[in-house]
Each structure stands twice: as C-alpha cells, then as structure tokens.
Design a protein around this nucleic acid. Sequence first.
DNA 1: GCGAATAGTTATGAGCCATAACAGATGTGA
DNA 2: TCACATCTGTTATGGCTCATAACTATTCGC
Lengths: 259, 259
Amino acid sequence: MDTSQTGPGASEPPDVASEARPSRRERARAATIEEIKETALRLMHEQGRTDLRFSDIAREMGMTAPALYRYFNDRDELLTAMIVDAYDDLGDKVADAREAVDPEDLPGRFYAVAAAYRAWANRDPQRFALIFGLPVPGYIAPEEGPTTEAAQRAMMQLKAMFLDADQRGMLGSPIIAQAHPSLHKPAKDEDEVMTPAGAGPLPPEFFQACLTAWSMLHGFVTLETYGHFSFIGPEGRDALFDTVVRLTAITSGYPWPDS
Amino acid sequence: MDTSQTGPGASEPPDVASEARPSRRERARAATIEEIKETALRLMHEQGRTDLRFSDIAREMGMTAPALYRYFNDRDELLTAMIVDAYDDLGDKVADAREAVDPEDLPGRFYAVAAAYRAWANRDPQRFALIFGLPVPGYIAPEEGPTTEAAQRAMMQLKAMFLDADQRGMLGSPIIAQAHPSLHKPAKDEDEVMTPAGAGPLPPEFFQACLTAWSMLHGFVTLETYGHFSFIGPEGRDALFDTVVRLTAITSGYPWPDS
DNA sequence: GCGAATAGTTATGAGCCATAACAGATGTGA
DNA sequence: TCACATCTGTTATGGCTCATAACTATTCGC
C-alpha cells in the first residue's frame, strides 16, 4: 500500500496557521472524516457496543469498507480518534456546566461539574467505557500518545476549579492535610499541561485533595454507569450521588454550605 | 445442533449433594472445563486483552477449536463463566485478607480489605476489566443472571465489615448522617443475599456510608488500574491510596486511629 | 484541456465464530 | 463378552470481518 498518503488523522504540518485556506479538497476530506466518526458514534449507541465494524460504518454511509482505509489506516486509528474526541467532549461539557453557574457560587459550580461528569457518563456509556475502561479488548493505547494528552486536558477542569477557589481564598483545610512529597510537585511536563496559564501552583495538599475528589466522583459514576448500583433504584442513586458530591467537597476543603 | 447436550456450565440437577459420586466421566469433564478456563485466563494475561479466541485456547490445549463447543455453547458463555470466577476470586481474596488480621484490629482489617481489592486489580487488570468495565464490547451480561449474583456476593464483604464493627459498637458517626428513604431498606431480595446470616440489619446511614466507601475505593483503584494515575509515579500512588483509605474510614464513621 | 493526486470500486486472502458431518474412545447392559 | 449408546474429539464448510491489491473515475491545479 502507498503508506505515504496524507496522514489520516495525522493532521497537517505543524506550522500553526500558515496554510490559510484549507483548500476545497481538504475540507471535503475533513468533512468525510467527521462523518465517519459521527457514524461510528451513532452505531456505538444504537448497538450498545464499543467495537466498530468498518463494514457497518461504510454501509451506513453508502460506501464500501475499503474506502475507509483512505481516512484511517486501521481500526485502532479510528478508535484513537474517537477516544480523543470523547475526552474533548467530556472536557467541554464539564467546562460548559461550570461556566453556566455564577462564578461566585462555588458550591454551585462544584455540583454542576460533578453532575455534568455524571450526566455525560450516563448519556454516553459507550464513550465512557472507551475512555475509562479497557476500551476495546485488543486496543492498545499509543504510549504517551494523543489519548494521554487528551486525558490530562480533560482532567485539568477539576484542578482549575480548585485553583480558582484557592485564588479567591475560599479553600478551607482538607481532612487529610499531609501530602506525600511525590505529590508536592506534580512533575514538570504534566504541570504545564494541567495548569491553566497565569495561575500559581496548587498547594500539594489540595492537589492531593483534587485527586481524591476525582477518585470519589469517578468511583460513583463508574459503578453507576456499569449498573452496579442498579439494585438501589434511580432515586437511591440520585440521593447517593448528592451524598458523594457533598462528601467530596467537604473532605477536600472545598467551600460548601452548612446543612 | 443437539441443544439437549449436558448443559455446559449449567451444572447438575439442583439436588444438593444427592448424586454422591461424580462419576469418572463427569470428573474428567469438570477437569477439562477447568483447564479451558485456566488457559483462557493465562492467555488474557499474556496477551493483555479480554477477548478470547477459541482457536488460541484450543491450540494451547492441543485441541481444535470446535471441540470447545462441547463445553461452552459460545464465547459469551465462556466469558460469563470467567466473570463469575473472577467475582468469586475477588471475594475470596478480600475475605482472606480480612481474616488474616486480628479481629480486634478493625482499622487493620479495613486497610487489609482495601489493599486486597487494590492488589487484586493491579495483579489482574484484565479480570478487573472483565468485572468492572464494559468487559468485551459485544458481550451482553445475562440480565439478573449469574454475574449479578456473583457481584453481590463479592460486595457483601464490605457490608459485612461494617456490620461487624456495628455489632461491636465501634462505629462512629458518618460525616453524612442523613440517608435517603430509598436507602433505608436495601430491597428485600438483595438484602437476603447481602446480609450474612444472623446479623441484624445495617442502619441506613451506614449502608449509605458503605456505598460511598465502595465508590471512593473503587474510584481510586479503577483510575490507577487503567493508568490514569501513572503521571504521579508509584510512590505517589501508594501515598494517595493510603490517603483514600484513611479518608474512606474517617468519613464513614469506621473506627480509625487518630494521627 | 492535461497530468497527477484523490476517492472510490471490485477482487482477494487470511482469520475467526459457529455448525455439520463424521470417527474414535469409553462406559453400560444383556 | 460383546454390541450399543454416549461422549469427545476430528475435518469440512459457510459466513463474516479486517486488511491489502489492483483498477477506475473524478477532481484539482496549472
């Protein structure tokens, strides 16, 4: 095969915004790539499974399967693209939810973020599995590749909220205030990715609190999404979620109204 | 096909221990089933993936693929068996860890249980994914089938620990003491499954605390197992785990030494 | 308009699930 | 003891998927 084809998801050369106009063909190509991913996502939802059949996607698009190889070198490449999209979408939805709440209302923002995380998972269990499960059994995530970066971008949302509260001087004291030395500086590279520009560093005990908060929230959401809480019914789950969010905020030193 | 064959995993008639001697052939059959499952598990580990190829398993056993259909009607049935085994193994390992610690040392037991849960997941990420992920994309768990029961059996371990502490009058007050009505009685059927014989019911606020505890612990373990904490390094993860366990106990009202 | 790159097609091969048809081994009853 | 039924394995086959090859039509840039 002609492996020198225009790299599928590989994007254009890194010169940021030089090639001003994306040429008619390039736009068509981008549109097709988009359509492929949308079709794949729709099929995931309809079939309730995270594996993809090129033949299904192609048929749905009125094409034949081999044509898809013009856009993605193999199934893993399509999957990687969908994982990156999923991370981005999760990050966007969470950010939207946060910004929809009055910036002064810190508890409101905290709850909104948690609820958005949960809602995203419930609405889109397949995509959630894609990100946070062993997505497709045989799929091997490219080490240090695009999925890792995407993950960190998405998770920055949570850290940002703690940073914001810290800058406002609204952070109390987390229940566990000591933090292990290795959490004192969250590695150089990652820090650049995870810290929004212009913000000072997050004190280590809050970085730790941020990670435990993520654990709590994620634990509930995962268990719920995969049906392990089905035995307590919908209202029970809603109530449990509220409890988890409250508990998360309180234990982290994040501002929360007395009750 | 002759669907009336001796049900593969379907086990013998329900009369408990009547057919005293499992006839030579039945023993051979059981041994083969066991070998199949062991081989499948080994391949999962070696290949790092949760999908199984009958051809691989058979080749590994010096057989041909169609022979496996004498023991499992299809791949899903083998998967279901492996999921049930995984739950049982997880439950066993957690129970062993708990009972290895002095019954008076409640914090020690709590930590041991959490550590066993974590260690099991780290040692066996594929099996963990089998249980707590969307295991194999196309796999559909039999509604209300053996996997559900197995899950509840395994999770009973956690509840049992709270019950024990309660009976010793060692439970403090969880940080969130109110529990939603729907958590007041955890459904009739499930309660029978989840409550060890001879124990009184667990007060609702502790049932709730038990669920949040599970969420916290599970959240950390899931994120760690799937590599989402790789950026903080091994010591960081160990430290974070200790923090999570402490936090879990403290917030649940479970006895924990001051520090 | 012409040549080159692009986007599609059909044809093909290898691998896997699953079933069918058949054959050897094994245990059972007259 | 021997014939029969059952169980356990085999080879043969069909249908489906991923992936590549070889070929064709379209479209873009000059």
